[in-house]
Design a binder for these strands. Structure first.
Length: 826
DNA sequence: TGTGAGTTGATTTTT
DNA sequence: TCAACTCACA
């Protein structure tokens, strides 16, 4: 009997759904109904009498797992299979077999913060000086190793890699510290489990038998550790079904190995491959733009994306003068649609490459009174007060948790300062003890003075007392510790306004805990609660419910869809990101990231970039993303937005007549903006722009000193006087007067390299600032205000080059960042 | 030991 | 720019 569930499925979808035994690879393009297929397949398996306990479904995000669970709930009510993220599954297995990898079952999961803390301590232990590398870079090296199943013992640094050499020294110490604190970091959740499965064949076999039908979502994002886990569960019963899309692999930086999916057919020779290529989400135009972009990637599996959806509107590409214009325009356009009743706020999403770009958007949305929500990776559980309290809870559950202890030993302040903590740490390292045990022996630490020792002893007693509550409901433990630690009182006694917010957050945490307690009435809820807070970020359930515009990073957008999508900051250095520049594989990943963003859009898509963007407090000329040149112009409307920011700064315009209520940006755009001609000479637009250039300098008085495309400064001030940007950015080879990158797009320039080359001309700098490199120690200089002086000290390079000048007039010394100062050599 | 001003330095993505 | 960190002082 064919289930009625399957009536509406296409042939390809049906094939995947009906597949039962043996390996299955579902190559699912964006919007191809992948989740639907997967949930139907599970329902189908269950329908055929396969016990729910034999089915395991692994996802990357909680969001994906939740959605699947919910949809499955509709198809097969009451059946519950193990479904969740890899990390959660790792934690689940590890709890049961912790002792086999040297942990105790009440281990805690260190978040990034905790793990950095431990890492820094490990660096200190290993006497690694951090001149050559940041803890961050070492952490990355270790993380990379773990994701590739390289344990501390096996780690071999790449020859010549300074960071690698340091990591080799720190890694064992770090790992030892984690074990001592009964802690695992995120990567350990996978690495330990992989090790467990490799070293315990009987355990592997029993799990393989138990999880007979394993499903993996987003397979393109698996790293080696995840691969190993999945593989070990599919040896005797190779009913492994994976879904994925190589074109949507965007987690290479986290160790994802694209080969896992590209080579799946080699790993499992008898695999059944199903391609889901029909898109049910986007208009034809959007899909063609996406397809054209991604076709520039080499490492992929070709797919024929198609859709029966309508043609749709052209994809818009807009050039703005500044990020404020960009944000204002988007906000206004959304506002116009909302007012006209054409759309609801939840229909809109704005994507950006880096979180920092949300700021301008937020400001614009607030000013225009548009409800929005930001999907932030962190938020609630990362707030100081919440983390503090969670750390106390961690200590109740696992007193050996050094990271948690370090966090709260003096929070609220109780007279245990940095020096004291250092001495306890030294004692702990020397004796191989967790910090709590060292603290317990505070009386025996000779370097501690009596007062400190007493304070520490008091703290230990406090923890011991709290620890007795370990089996109580979480909310009750929280209440008690808020009182006994004095945490609440400290905040209540404070008159700092942010402390009121903190109290509110604490209330929220209490509610959270109480709810959790209710949902877990039969167990000791503390440990699962802590696991939840470590592995779930609260934005996972941010979706849907509220009617707001959603702002998020491109990464966060994966798996989602919206009727109207804006992607801002499509610029060189952003997408592709600065750090992905030299590496082809990384460049392809950036392209996929943009592909993911584009394919989120159902009906309308707008890409935009700015001529100038403020980054790190500096206003810099922007190069549009080379990816833009890979998009098919025939599917697009390419427009330059009129400058919204008037001459005397944008604040003046607010509320002014020209910023009227009925300002409809779309109309305005259409009327005023010119479709860029294939090539054009100096024009009205240019003159207009020349004016703006001056305003920029007056406003910002910044140079573009360390813009990545710059050549080293030549040193001659005369040549560096502001020039119209048109000239500065035009392609010398093309011979047209059009420096507008968009025109270049349409004109003779063909490749990103061409564009970069064309822009590798000194950009205009602020009229007053000199190249920092022309200054030398002892040089006599002139300052418009302070007069004549002499450079007595000189440090730093580039924009950070700072001179100390002693002025003749009254012998006073002043420091200047040379790149921005009006100093001139005499 | 705790606090505030001043300085420096770093800027991606997330389980 | 802005947040984290340092250093001087109470």
């Amino acid at each position: 009997m064919t289930s009625s569930l399957e009536d509406s499925l296409t042939a390809a979808q049906l094939e995947a759904v009906r597949h039962r035994e043996g390996p299955l690879l579902i190559l699912a393009g964006p919007g191809s109904g992948k989740t639907r297929v997967v949930t139907h397949r599970i329902a189908h398996l269950l329908e055929q009498g396969i016990p729910a306990s034999q089915v395991l479904a692994l996802t990357f995000t909680n969001k994906a797992a939740d959605e699947m669970r919910q949809r499955l709930g509709q198809l097969a009510p009451g059946q519950s299979i193990w479904m969740g993220t890899f990390h959660r599954f790792g934690a689940f297995l590890l709890r049961r077999h912790a002792e086999r990898v040297g942990l105790r079952e009440n281990f805690s999961i260190a978040d990034v913060d905790d793990s950095r803390r431990i890492l820094k301590a490990a660096c200190a232990d290993a006497r690694v000086d951090l001149e050559m590398a940041t803890p961050e870079s070492i952490a990355q090296a270790i993380s990379w190793a773990k994701n590739n199943l390289i344990t501390a013992e096996l780690y071999q640094p790449r020859p010549g890699s300074a960071v690698g050499a340091l990591a080799a020294r720190v890694y064992p110490v770090y790992q030892q510290r984690l074990l001592r604190a009964n802690l695992v970091d995120f990567d350990d959740l996978l690495l330990h489990v992989a090790t467990l499965l490799r070293e315990n064949p009987e355990l592997r076999e029993s799990l393989d038998r138990r999880y007979r039908y394993v499903m993996v979502d987003e397979y393109q994002d698996t790293n080696l550790a995840q691969y190993a886990i999945v593989r070990s569960l599919s040896i005797d019963f190779p009913n492994l079904a994976v879904t994925g899309d190589p074109d949507q692999s965007i987690y290479g930086w986290r160790g994802a190995n694209l080969s896992n999916i590209l080579d799946f057919e080699r790993d499992f020779p008898r695999v059944n491959v199903v391609r889901l290529e029909q898109n049910y989400r986007s208009t034809r135009r959007i899909l063609r733009v996406a397809d054209e972009l991604i076709s520039h990637n080499v490492r992929r599996k070709h797919k024929e994306l198609f859709t029966e959806n309508p043609e749709g509107q052209p994809v818009r590409l807009i050039e703005f003068a500044s990020q404020h214009d960009e944000a204002d325009h988007i906000a206004s356009r959304i506002q116009a649609d909302l007012r006209a009743g054409r759309r609801r706020a939840r229909d809109f999403a704005v994507f950006y490459r880096v979180n920092a770009l949300s700021r301008a958007l937020e400001q614009a949305f607030r000013e225009q009174g548009i409800a929005y929500q930001i999907v932030h990776g962190v938020e609630f559980y990362q707030r100081k007060e919440v983390k503090d309290l969670l750390s106390y809870l961690q200590l109740v559950n696992n007193p050996a948790n050094d990271a948690a202890l370090l966090r709260v030993i003096n929070t609220p302040t109780r007279g245990i300062g940095a020096t004291t903590v250092e001495r306890i740490q030294a004692f702990a390292s020397a004796h191989g003890l967790p910090l709590i045990e060292a603290a317990r022996r505070s009386g025996m630490i000779p370097s501690l003075n009596a007062r400190a020792a007493v304070a520490v002893a008091r703290f230990v007693t406090l923890l011991d007392r709290l620890r007795e509550l370990a089996t109580e409901p979480v909310a009750r433990i929280l209440e008690r510790l808020l009182d006994e630690t004095g945490y609440r009182k400290t905040l209540e006694g404070s008159d700092a306004p942010e402390d009121m917010d903190r109290l509110a957050n604490i209330e929220e945490l209490l509610t959270d805990a109480a709810e959790f307690d209710q949902r877990h009435p039969h167990e000791t809820p503390l440990e699962p609660f802590l696991e939840q807070t470590a592995l779930v970020n609260d934005t996972d359930d941010l979706e849907g419910a509220s009617d707001r515009v959603t702002l998020m990073t491109l990464h966060a957008a994966k798996g989602l869809e919206y009727p109207v999508v804006f992607i801002v900051g499509v610029e060189q250095g952003l997408i592709p990101h600065e750090r992905s520049r030299e590496d082809d594989a990384q460049l392809e990943e950036e392209r996929r990231l943009l592909f993911v963003g584009i394919t989120r859009a159902e009906a309308e898509l707008t890409l935009s970039y700015c001529q100038y963007r403020v980054t790190h407090g500096m206003n810099r000329a922007v190069v549009p993303s080379p990816f833009l040149m890979e998009l098919p112009r025939r599917e697009m409307d390419v427009v330059t937005a009129p400058r919204l920011t008037p001459q005397y700064g944008r604040d003046k315009a607010r509320g002014g007549a020209e910023w009227g209520e009925d300002w409809l940006p779309t109309t305005q755009l259409r009327d005023d903006a010119r479709e860029l001609p294939m090539s054009h000479g100096p024009s009205e637009a240019q003159e207009q722009e020349d004016q703006h250039i001056e305003i920029d300098y007056l406003d910002e008085c910044e140079t573009n000193q360390d813009s990545p495309t710059r050549r080293p400064a030549s040193g001659s001030s005369a040549s560096r006087v502001a020039k119209p940007r048109r000239e500065a950015t035009m392609a010398p080879a093309s011979g047209t007067a059009s420096g507008n990158p968009l025109a270049a797009l349409a004109g003779k320039l063909r490749t990103a390299a061409d564009l970069a080359e064309s822009l590798d001309t000194p950009l205009p700098s602020a009229p007053s600032a000199m190249s920092p490199e022309v200054f030398a120690h002892g040089m006599r200089v002139q300052h418009p205000e302070y007069g004549v002086g002499q450079i007595v000290h000189l440090v730093g390079t580039g924009p950070k080059r700072t001179a100390t000048v002693r002025f003749q007039r009254d012998g006073v010394e002043k420091k200047f960042r040379l790149a921005f100062s009006p100093l001139r050599p005499m």
